[in-house]
Design a protein around this nucleic acid. Structure first.
Lengths: 203, 203, 203, 203
DNA sequence: GATGAATGAGGATTCATTCAT
DNA sequence: TATGAATGAATCCTCATTCAT
């Protein structure tokens, strides 16, 4: 099943088209400043149709925010679980590469939206915690355990909080959300951190 | 229950009272969802008075956001520059202690506001970059240089991006902004990072 | 008494209906004292709909004021240019009759609005000068020239400012705008003036 | 009693200072767009003081509008009644000269205000009719009668409406109120009219 | 399903007016 | 008297939502 180009008109997938348009609009203007009219215009449909699929603006928001990240996280977790690379090779390869892409990806936008709107949508936050964060951290933990079992990592590595891997990525995300590209080599930041952490973890 | 007089006049600093109320309101609801009426009510004044001191909602927002952080950053930078502790002692002591407090402090709120509203207020972002970020990073850099000169740090430490010190703090900030206290020992996170970094920096 | 349906949709020309209502409201209360809500109520629509067709109150004002006069002036100028009456017959007939009607017509209202609001809407004033005044005076001048060529008027008539024809009409307009019908025979005023002027112009 | 310069501080005549400032403000911005704050600032007093002398904005408006014209009309009527010039000399001299000055004088402003705000202030209009218009027309009528008695004017002159003298002045006033100086020789307009009328009136 | 005209509650802002000092 | 901080009703304008077609 090849990917369809995103904004091509497909009568059969209007809800998705609308969700995509909405995501773009929310990304650009935030939740409050996005008008349903804008979303409809972007999606090339009428305002009324938006309401056919999404009962309220909030519904639309939640649907959009959920649907964006889960697809990606699923893929990454799948990778983690099925890789046959050595732990270090996986970290320096696919994981690092993924992390480098995040600050410029829709995930960063979702983080912005969660930070802005989360307090007004606790169920959305719960959803994220369960479906993204908990699962992601679980996968990393399992991955480290596997490294320990294989003798690649020291036993003490298990005590290590996996969050440290993610910290420079998060800094990079926030930096770019606020300051755009202003003078920060985010890639190098993540590489240095991985170097440091691997030095510590190595058996 | 005596009637409250309609016209209250107080000696205190009304603009500051209003700014404080506004900060609380923005913190709770974000910029867009905060009504000027709310701010006024919180400050115990009428809507009109708010407009006497701040020409627009945006003015109020900017005034509030600026006034919150600068005071704190000034203090910290002062500490960095005037400390007579050894570099490591300063990092493990005052700096770590400051960083631990940030995720629960108004600074975190300001970061939330910058992430949410920054794109609509570029001058505010610029202000932050110049007055907070650039100065903060400058202070850290100077501090590392001093450590090198004193023979406490290796010469290569200079190549290190100071951002790595801040990364776990930022992760902690964001974590708490989104998930509140949910299962993350942010203090330990920052300590581990400091340990790792000092190991690398030490001469 | 059956409930009125909440959503009325009519085939008629809503923008024009709103403009008509607005003209009536502005005529009655002036620009500043007219609330958009009043206009909407008069037009039998909601406030919001007014804004669908006219972006701001000022837009509505300008649209309304333009649309009232131009139709009438076009008609009059057409008459002047196509008449086959003798010059004097035309002046005593159609022109006098037109001038007599003006003080009680929407044109008088427009003049009131221009006097009141003109200084705050220079482009509207320019519009009037070009589309109404300049064209009107041009037509009168051409008409006098034609009278001279035909030998009906003396050659010196060309030096005459055509404004003198209009002066009593303007006095009548203003009189009625301020004092309503109070003791002034405006028709006779204009007739006397026309008599006097024709005496002077006649060959 | 020499005139005091208008805006000099005189503790003893605050009400007049405020009225003068108010007139200037109303002249510039119209009634609705004039803020009491502006008036106070112009007068160099506090907003509160304005309310000490004038209970409401409307009071202030009426006071101001009344006081401006009456002084001048009184003077003119006095001239008419006491002149020893021949009728024609008086008309061509002091009267014409007065009429020429009106379009650029505060009287024109008052006319603007009456046209704009009159409908909302019928008592103001009545005041004007009685104190300015009726008296003015009375004086002109009496003046013509005098001319007839003296044999300067034909008996039929009495049937003539004195308004015709004023018509070009009114056109000039309105023209300047709307179009400022744009291409109209208002002086010549009034002279031509006076010529015409005198030709008719002369015995 | 699809449209977009129509609604009206909600919120920013202004400014006449009041009154403590 | 004189001040100007304080009030809140009034009004413009926006936009989520509804519904006739």
């Amino acid at each position: 099943m090849p990917d369809q180009p995103k904004y091509q008109r497909r009568k059969e997938d209007r809800p998705q088209e609308i969700a995509d348009a909405a995501f773009a609009a929310f990304a650009e203007n935030g939740y409050a400043a996005t008008r349903i009219d804008d979303v409809a215009k972007r999606a090339g449909v009428s305002k009324g149709l938006t309401y056919l699929y999404y009962k309220t603006k909030e519904d639309l928001f939640k649907a959009v925010v959920k649907n964006v990240v889960v697809r990606r996280v699923d893929a990454l977790i799948g990778d983690v679980e099925s890789t046959d690379l050595s732990s270090e090779a996986f970290i320096r390869g696919p994981l690092l590469s993924f992390m480098k892409k995040v600050p410029g990806s829709p995930i960063a936008i979702v983080i912005r939206l969660l930070i802005s709107e989360g307090p007004r949508h606790p169920d959305l936050v719960d959803y994220y915690y369960e479906n993204v964060v908990a699962r992601g951290l679980g996968a990393i933990t399992k991955f480290i355990e596997r490294g320990v079992e294989r003798g690649e990592f020291r036993r003490e590595a298990l005590e290590h909080q996996p969050h440290l891997f993610l910290a420079p990525m998060m800094l990079s995300i926030i930096w770019r959300l606020i300051f755009a590209e202003k003078q920060l080599n985010t890639d190098q930041l993540m590489e240095s951190q991985v170097d440091m952490l691997l030095t510590q973890l190595r058996a």
